[in-house]
Write a protein that binds this DNA or RNA. Structure first.
Lengths: 174, 174
DNA sequence: AAACATACAGACAAGTCTGTCTATTTTTTT
DNA sequence: AAAAAAATAGACAGACTTGTCTGTATGTTT
């Protein structure tokens, strides 16, 4: 069995993503991670602290998957298109739970600034990703916006149909 | 003073929008609405029931404001463009708290189907709104997607900058 | 005047939450 | 093998949650 900190992060990832941040309690996390409460507070000074760690982990995981997936395509344009296929794959895999970052954005208050910063930084990286693929900055923004709404709308309607449409629209743009 | 049910809905609207659904308790709502708890449960059978009532009220409010705002424009195309100005106005007015419907979408679980349905129906109406303004269905979807992400990204970055960009992109489309 | 609806205050149940603490055991390092 | 570090269980504080309940007061209708 892995180290407690890893087990906590592992379970928090599953539960935050499945149930949401506010609906997931520390007690459930530690009990499913088989970790004592005192151990939890040795590794994380608060639940918000865990949230930041989770989002960082999620960022690394999600981006490495995206890069992996899109790198199969040969040219830049195809990489952009395949990013939409990536959404669809992730939706199927994760039951249309949408974007962890945007979900948590909806749950936090003004006071939770450190969490907000991680979310902003994640989305900034996504914009940079598209910016590197298409040189035109306005076009990159355009695709980024379509990409974002594709994730959200598929979460809302629990279907990949709108991702297909977003993909088609994006294809017509480039 | 208005009737208790109105006062409850009024306060719930403010608090759900400001703090989020799960972070707002019944006790806070009734205390700020100056209503007894027994009275609350006479008008709403549960918190989820109140949530549905809130979303319906919000739907009516938001759409009437949108129609009002956009009807100042003379032609169809200008109405579409002014919808983006509407977002900016609402963002300023409501401190970049984003879309109530999408915020609550992030907070609910699979079991809360009745809430999900109200959210889906709201967004369907928004799609219909754009569909009626631009006859091309794919273009309407395109604009709808840009509109949605404009709301979300401005909530994320607490700025109207990306709404301006979305507006510019939309203008170039029609 | 009697009956009814609606509102009130607020105690209460049963559970949740985060975070702290003590005391014991296991694991790692010297 | 001894010392130090890390993990354990779980009690506890204090505040919160939704929802139920009793009893009282006010106002309207018959």
């Amino acid at each position: 069995m892995s180290a407690p900190r890893e087990r906590i992060l592992e379970q928090a990832s599953v539960l935050f993503h499945q149930q949401g941040y506010n609906s997931t309690g520390i007690n459930q996390i530690i009990s499913e991670a088989n970790v004592a409460k005192a151990s939890f507070y040795q590794h994380f000074k608060s639940k918000d602290d865990l949230c930041v760690a989770f989002l960082n982990k999620r960022h690394d995981y999600w981006f490495s998957k995206l890069i992996d997936f899109t790198s199969k395509s040969k040219n830049q344009k195809e990489k952009v298109i395949s990013a939409f296929d990536f959404i669809m794959q992730m939706n199927e895999r994760e039951n249309f739970r949408g974007c962890s970052f945007l979900n948590i954005l909806s749950e936090i208050s003004k006071e939770q600034e450190s969490i907000l910063k991680v979310i902003q930084s994640h989305k900034n990286d996504l914009r940079i990703f598209f910016n590197q693929l298409v040189k035109d900055e306005l076009l990159a923004t355009h695709i980024y916006l379509l990409f974002e709404s594709a994730i959200i709308e598929s979460q809302l309607f629990k279907s990949n149909e709108i991702v297909h449409q977003s993909k088609a629209i994006t294809t017509s743009l480039i």
